[in-house]
């Protein structure tokens, strides 16, 4: 059984985010790109399933929509243990355009399931997985925290408001996974790092598709002001509810 992992890349969480061209574009000159951490956990688990002889998973492929600059990230995915990588050669513009590119490639691919990380820390928060499922007309299972197998049938565990549910799907599914799916991301070993370049990394052309939304400008979040001293408990309750809107 083949498992497909959709990967996106985001600025390293310690990177300072800056913008250029009158704050209309991300200034990517100093950014260190990394695998979206949720996708990294998804890949980690997929590779663990492949390495576990007790599961039917025998192949892991990673797919990414992005320009040539994201190839090092795909190779890191290969170093971690994916067997094959595919890059769809276009910059992601919004979740819809990204999901449509993925769907065009994934349509009809023989696989057990497709995994997407719950949210990518850039623009597309959590939308690509759901859109992809709809475009492929697959079931989507969100908040997935683990996959087990009943023979060759995957059983997905998802977190719901008041507990956990195990579900199964007849046919392929798109899983939207979160923390817990794997404990920590797998660190690639030397063998993985050395063989990454010899594994297939296919580049395929993008299809024509327009985004549905457009990012027109960026601003810095308001900086944290100083402390506001309050004199009575009433003032505190009011501040927390009316001003901070947290209660």
């Amino acid at each position: 059984m083949k498992v497909l992992v959709c990967m996106s890349y985001i600025p390293d969480t310690t990177t300072k985010i800056r913008f250029r061209e009158d704050n209309t574009q991300l200034d990517d000159t100093t950014i260190q790109w990394v695998i979206n951490p949720w996708d990294e956990l998804a890949l980690t688990r997929a590779v663990e399933l492949k390495e576990d002889a007790g599961t039917p998973v025998d192949e892991v492929e990673i797919v990414m929509v992005g320009g040539v600059r994201c190839e090092p990230i795909l190779r890191k995915g290969l170093a971690i243990g994916a067997d094959k990588a595919t890059r769809i050669d276009v910059e992601p513009l919004d979740a819809f355009q990204t999901a449509t590119q993925l769907a065009a490639y994934l349509q009809g691919k023989d696989c057990g399931f497709i995994v997407c990380g719950i949210e990518s820390g850039d623009y597309n928060e959590a939308a690509v997985g759901g859109m992809l499922a709809e475009l492929l007309d697959y079931a989507s299972v969100s908040s997935v925290s683990s996959v087990q197998f009943d023979g060759v049938t995957p059983i997905y565990q998802r977190d719901v408001a008041n507990g956990k549910e195990q579900v199964k799907v007849d046919g392929p599914a798109v899983l939207i996974v979160q923390k817990g799916f794997a404990r920590v991301p797998k660190i690639p070993n030397m063998r993985g790092i050395m063989t990454a370049r010899s594994k297939p990394l296919d580049v395929i052309p993008a299809i024509e598709v327009d985004p549905l939304v457009e990012f027109v400008m960026y601003t810095a979040p308001p900086s944290k002001g100083g402390v506001k001293m309050l004199n009575t408990p009433e003032e505190l309750v009011r501040s927390l509810s009316d001003e901070a809107k947290l209660i």
Partner: peptide, 17 residues
């Protein structure tokens, strides 16, 4: 090189984690 960066990250991840 890409490989050198991966090794640096792998060592850092193991050490820091």
């Amino acid at each position: 090189t890409e490989e050198q960066i991966m090794i640096q990250q792998a060592a850092r991840d193991y050490a820091q984690r």
